[in-house]
């Protein structure tokens, strides 16, 4: 079984971080199914992964936030003949101010980052539990570690997802499968293109991709990416509210 090509399903495969991970899996000869909502982009990524060495790279175009997760995943996994990794990568940052003033905008962030992602996670957990093998890898965020005025709607969606994945990890640990939550810090991707000055704490997607691929094999259940964020967030969580509330973080 170790020699067989890894079967990987990526939800939100057009994400820069997901693509970086996919390139590594492709180089190792994996069989990938890319799920996303932009056909032309999925096509470009699939072609690239094929040249890089993927045993297969196909795609399914759908909106992850509104699709029937259970049914779609079942079809994909049946086609692959089982699955070794399910990566849940899609997400939206949203705009904090808009989310505060427009309830639909906040609901949209929750629907994409939490409600729909949770459905995919639960569907994947059922598959992995039945197989008694495989790993669910989910991209959360350090923003879920403490609510901050600048992005707590996004943060809450990722925090909720984090607890869900933690629970799934607990459940699967007793069934021979795994779940891992990746918590990236600042990553230089289209999602953060608006941030003009990117300092020392910013990582390239390639670095996070490498961490994801490793985490799919072993370790976890919570992986900060890169690791330094474990300590940064520890400090941030420990700052007393009396002090924290005086910042604009």
């Amino acid at each position: 079984m170790t020699d067989a090509a890894k079967r990987i399903v990526i939800l939100g495969a057009t994400s820069a971080i997901a693509e970086a991970a996919a390139r590594r899996w492709a180089k190792a000869g994996g069989r990938l199914v890319l799920v996303g909502r932009n056909t032309e982009r999925l096509e470009a990524i699939a072609a690239d992964l094929a040249v890089r060495g993927a045993a297969a790279a196909t795609f399914v175009a759908l909106d992850c936030a509104s699709a029937d997760a259970e049914a779609e995943l079942a079809t994909i996994v049946a086609d692959l003949g089982g699955v070794d990794v399910v990566l849940v990568a899609y997400g939206v940052l949203g705009d904090q101010r808009t989310a505060e003033t427009t309830p639909q905008a906040a609901a949209e962030v929750f629907r994409t980052n939490f409600t729909s992602a949770a459905a995919w996670c639960l569907a994947a957990a059922n598959v992995l539990e039945r197989q008694r093998s495989g790993t669910l890898v989910v991209i959360g965020s350090v923003a879920g570690d403490r609510g901050r005025l600048s992005n707590y709607v996004y943060g809450a969606s990722k925090a909720g997802l984090g607890v869900l994945v933690q629970g799934i990890a607990h459940r699967l640990a007793q069934q021979g499968a795994r779940a891992v939550l990746i918590k990236p810090g600042f990553v230089d991707t289209p999602m953060t293109a608006a941030v003009a000055r990117k300092g020392l704490l910013w990582a390239k997607p390639a670095r996070i991709g490498a961490i994801i691929v490793k985490a799919a094999d072993k370790g976890g259940p919570v992986v900060y990416a890169p690791g330094i964020w474990r300590w940064i967030m520890l400090v941030i969580r420990l700052v007393p509210a009396s002090l924290f509330h005086r910042t604009k973080l």
């Binding site: 690239d48 040249v51 890089r52």
Partner: peptide
């Protein structure tokens, strides 16, 4: 920076 096509027999390479 994606590869679009690479024909290993003819050496034709199409890239971004």
């Amino acid at each position: 920076d994606r590869l679009i096509a690479f024909d290993r027999t003819t050496g034709r390479l199409v890239v971004e």
